[in-house]
């Protein structure tokens, strides 16, 4: 290539990138910066225009009990869903990774909830949880146990949502473990058998450590999902009762589109962005190292 084509390389490169760049700047980079900027201004009204207040919104956020409530709910939601669904995913993958009757049907059963929209899942589970007439209360009734308003009680609403989310997500994580298991060298199993290692020992000391990169990948995605996934709240609880099931992103939605306080919503979004940035860094440093380690 001659010198002119050398210049053209830059021109063509940027021209090809232009459509994507405009959209990405418009809907990812600009709004990220704008969020932080907006969070420094007070809520404007007809008589009092919005004005610069520095960290004012952040200070009132620190005193907002709902903010702390949704943040701790997010934490409990993550603690409740992630370890269980990852453990189940590993279990499912191990169960269907060998020859057994109906293997593809089994995989299908585990994976199908993943393909459904969260809204549909919430619709199905809403009936399971409804007091007295719901399926769970009917089952309890068979054993003479009293019914319960699962979604109406602040103590049971988050666990109820956690169970539903585990059902929805475990099968998704399973496929990554299945892929990883298929890449394990078969000699390992033979060696363990010859050494007389028990199945549990073989899993604990050989398989599980080798699955570590997959586990880290799945964990980070699961944490991300736990912050992004709020669709079910619209159908099941609207964040209630008394914010017992409210999550950060749902609170952002409420603040912006029900209370019309876009500046405070921007402040909350900035917190969410900070959390995501930390996760991105964790993914960058943890995940890459672990994969190159092997």
């Amino acid at each position: 290539m001659g010198p002119t084509s050398n210049i053209m390389r830059h021109v063509y490169g940027w021209l090809l990138l232009t459509p994507a760049a405009i959209l990405l700047i418009g809907f990812t980079h600009y709004p990220t910066v704008a969020t932080v900027y907006e969070s420094l201004f007070s809520k404007g009204s007809a008589i009092r225009p919005s004005r610069f207040i520095g960290a004012g919104n952040y200070e009132s956020m620190m005193e907002d009990p709902i903010f702390w409530k949704v943040l701790s709910n997010n934490l409990w939601f993550a603690i409740g869903t992630i370890p269980t669904s990852v453990a189940l995913a590993i279990g499912m993958a191990l169960l269907v990774n060998r020859a057994l009757p109906g293997r593809s049907l089994l995989r299908l059963a585990y994976f199908t909830p993943t393909i459904l929209p969260m809204i549909a899942v919430a619709n199905i589970w809403l009936f399971f949880y409804s007091p007295d007439i719901g399926l769970i209360d009917r089952l309890l009734g068979l054993f003479g146990l009293p019914g319960h308003n699962w979604l109406g009680d602040p103590d049971t609403v988050l666990p109820a949502i956690i169970v539903m989310t585990i059902w929805k997500e475990a099968g998704f994580f399973m496929i990554f473990y299945l892929a990883a298991l298929q890449h394990l060298p078969p000699e390992l199993k033979e060696a363990a058998r010859l050494e007389g290692a028990s199945r549990w020992y073989y899993f604990r000391r050989v398989v599980f450590p080798l699955l570590m990169p997959t586990t880290l990948f799945v964990l980070i995605n699961a944490v991300l999902n736990s912050f992004k996934l709020v669709d079910h709240l619209f159908v099941l609880t609207k964040g209630g009762p008394d914010n017992a099931s409210n999550l950060l992103l749902y609170y952002i939605y409420e603040t912006a589109f029900s209370y019309f306080d876009t500046n405070y919503a921007a402040t909350l979004t900035a917190v969410l962005l900070a959390i995501l940035a930390v996760l991105a860094l964790a993914q960058f440093f943890l995940l890459d190292k672990r994969i190159h380690y092997r």
Partner: peptide
């Protein structure tokens, strides 16, 4: 096309993997 600034541009593209448009509903609306 190894164009000038391609590495920085690629890193900026990857930001969207973490910050999905639905996180930024307020500004995007």
């Amino acid at each position: 096309y190894r164009f000038a600034g391609s590495n920085v541009a690629f890193a900026l593209v990857l930001v969207q993997l973490m910050v999905a448009p639905e996180i930024l509903i307020v500004e995007n609306y």
